[in-house]
Structures are given as C-alpha cells and as structure tokens.
Amino acid sequence: MRVFKNHCSIGVCLALSCLGAIATAGEKALPDAVEDTSVSILDIEGQERAPFQLDEAKASVLLFVTQDCPISNAYAPEMARLRSEFGSKGFALTLVYVDPDVSRNEIAEHMKAYSLTGYVAIADRRHDLVKATGARVTPEAVVTLPDGAIAYRGRIDNMYPSLGNRRRVITEKDLRSALNSIDQNEAIDRVRTQAVGCYIPNL
C-alpha cells in the first residue's frame, strides 16, 4: 500500500515543480514600462492604431491571444464581458493576435465564431507589441497607463492553475481587480501574475 501513496505524491509534485519552472522562466527581465509609446500598427480593418498613446482613455488593455490555443479560446466569453464593462468605463481594450502566420480574414472569422466582434483587433505578425510589452503567453493581459508604465501584467484570472488543469471554481479575478483599482484611483493589489497558456508562437 505504501508504494502507491508514494507514487501518488510524486505525480502531484512533478506537476508542481514544473509549474515552478515555468514561473521562473517567465520572470526574466520583463519591462516595467513601454519604452517607445509611439509604436503604431494597423488593425485588421486597416486603420492605424497606437495602442500606448492614450488620448482620453484611463488605460490601454492589451489582450494577447492566439486563434488556436484552447486556453486562450476558453477565455473568449470573459474577454467579451471585459470589453463591454470596461470599455464604457474609459478603458481602451485591444485583442492582439500574435500568430505570425494568421491572416486578417482568419482573425475576423475567429472573432465572429467566439463572439468577440466589437473589439479592436491587431495582427501583430512581427511581434512589435509582443516585444514592446514582454508578453510571453496567450492569453495574457498587459495594462499600460498614459505614461507607458505597465500597471498590470499577467493572467485574466486563475481558471488555469497549469496547462491541462482547469479550476472548477475561479477564485481570483486579477485583471478585473486591477482595472477596478485603476478606475477608482486605488493601488493595484497584485501588479504581476503568471499567465498560464500557450507560449507566444515564434516568428
């Protein structure tokens, strides 16, 4: 009987130690601010966008996504809610599609299928926005303030404790709470969290 118990805890711990490995790899020298806030890029409609230049908006919320990552896709309903709730509170929300091979057409189809229409969407095929923010995973949120400071970076919530594990009950809604804090001019509780998902595909 003993033997089995040992097996069991090794299994569990292996998963934990791997999680640790991801976390440390992800924390290497990420920028605390966007250096060049003038970066501009076309959205999928062909309109010029400068996501770090905020005229009126309180903050820019970039959601890094891939069209074929199951974790990124599982967040589509929450992304749609975030846009309708925080868009009207003066936040600029943008979907950043980071697969270097994705076409504008595929993005438009994906947005339709996942009820994400209404978002400004950018095909970041050369990873300009990925590099500017240090995003590593999809889905990952980066929130920048008018001065370029990265106010929040990380997960949307804690639905996925690790790849392949989904929590039945979400207990931490980190992005929402960061946006609410910005909205109310309060300090953000946790400014950095670990996004769990698919690593951003290589160029």
């Binding site: 292996l14 791997c18 490995a21 392949g164 290589n202």
Partner: peptide, 19 residues
C-alpha cells in the same frame, strides 16, 4: 517544420510535463 518550430517552447513544456 513550421508547425513545430513556431510552438517549440510550448511543445517542450507539455512533453516535459508529461501532459
């Protein structure tokens, strides 16, 4: 090649995890 190269780090993570 492209399918795999572009997801290299992700693939490494999931195979090391035995997921």
């Amino acid at each position: 090649y492209r399918d795999v190269q572009k997801r290299g780090e992700l693939i490494l993570t999931v195979v090391e995890d035995r997921y």
